[in-house]
Amino acid sequence: QRHYGQYDGFVVIHGTDTMAFAASVLSFVLENLQKPVILTGAQVPIHALWNDGRENLLGALLMAGQYVIPEVCLFFQNQLFRGNRVTKVDSRRFAAFCSPNLPPLAVVGTDVTINQELVRKARGKAPLVVHSCMERDVGLLRLYPGIPAALVRAFLQPPLKGLVMETFGSGNGPTKPDLLRELQAAAERGLIIVNCTHCLQGAVTSDYAAGMAMAGAGIVSGSDMTSEAALAKLSYVLGQPGLSLDCRKELLARDLRGEMTLPAGAKGQPSLSRSTLGRGVAQLLTLSQGAIVSTQEADAVRDAVAPSLACAAAHAGNLEVLQALVELGSDLSLENFNGQTPLHAA
């Protein structure tokens, strides 16, 4: 944080065994990130004759120094991943990490291919916020067939405040009444339980009766988050002061840092095609995704047009357009060419 203003990007050298955990935690600790923070390491130490450390380090430096990707990322074996989407899948091969539910943000070969539509956009010019208050009393429990309810009860005791529970398939677990009673009792005590699948790919759903039963026990769906991301997110949410239990559960169900893929109907993205103003914002969205112009040009267009669009939306009472502009990273406190802000227009 002390050196944030001095550099355009950061590379963190990290051991591979816990790198996915560190990347996930950093993604929640660093809010309003405007610059790349890239973790990398090596399966074989860089001093060895045959190693992967040199290529990983050079690739991470290239991505941090040449591209504007304002996220916490992990670079390994010529691929740049979103940090809170990765997990380590091999203890020996150079291709040690994968992102099971999100393609790489970039691939380095003879050319560098950036998946611009996946890269998260920086929101306005808000200053970096470092969240140092992370709850430590969180845990990870993997269910298995026949797991005793007494063991689960012992695991759920204070001082535990939050639990990531790895379940079968699309979110199923044992349906024994005594086990479900333990989960229900823990939820009623205020313990937050996040349900993640132990499968490498896919998401938690409530399609099956067992999954529905567990959801009825007050458990929050972890969608397609990795266990590393779910644990980091739970620690972050529980570390936020002054929030009610319902607010914390709502935060856990939201996509905060690109860590989860929400169902199409739950993304909350407004339909912008019903008005001329909405269509204008939709075109601006297209620009911001790099479909027509470069990122720098899109930012310049957005900064020039957004204040007037925001004032027009405020005057018309169009909250959907205002929300879309916020998601673009527009600053709603900026004045338009008449010196008005959306608050004046409203």
Score class of each variant (00 low, 15 high):
R2G: 11
D8T: 08
G9R: 11
F10G: 07
I13V: 14
T16E: 03
D17N: 11
T18C: 15
F21Q: 11
N32P: 04
L33D: 07
Q34A: 14
K35C: 09
V37P: 07
L39G: 01
N56F: 13
A60L: 09
G65E: 11
C73D: 04
Q77V: 09
N78V: 03
Q79Y: 08
Q79V: 11
F81N: 08
T87F: 05
V89I: 15
R92V: 12
R92K: 05
C98T: 15
C98A: 12
L102R: 12
L102K: 06
P104C: 07
N115A: 14
N115Y: 03
R120M: 13
A122C: 08
M134N: 10
G139Y: 10
G139I: 10
P145I: 01
G146P: 09
G146H: 08
I147F: 11
L151M: 14
F155E: 02
F155K: 08
L156Q: 04
P158I: 02
V164S: 01
E166S: 05
E166N: 01
G169M: 06
S170D: 03
S170L: 05
G173Q: 08
P174E: 14
T175P: 02
L179I: 06
E182M: 05
Q184N: 06
E188F: 01
L191P: 07
I192H: 08
L200A: 04
S206W: 00
A210N: 14
M212Q: 15
A213T: 01
S221E: 10
S227G: 12
E228C: 15
A229K: 04
A232C: 14
S235W: 15
Y236L: 09
G239E: 08
G242V: 03
C247L: 01
R248N: 00
L251D: 01
L252P: 07
L252M: 06
K267G: 00
L272N: 00
L272H: 00
S273Y: 05
R279P: 03
G280M: 13
Q283M: 12
S288D: 03
A291Y: 15
I292D: 00
V293K: 05
T295R: 12
Q296F: 14
D299W: 07
A306V: 06
P307F: 13
H315F: 15
H315M: 14
E327I: 01
D331G: 01
L334P: 02
Q340I: 11
H344W: 07
A345I: 02
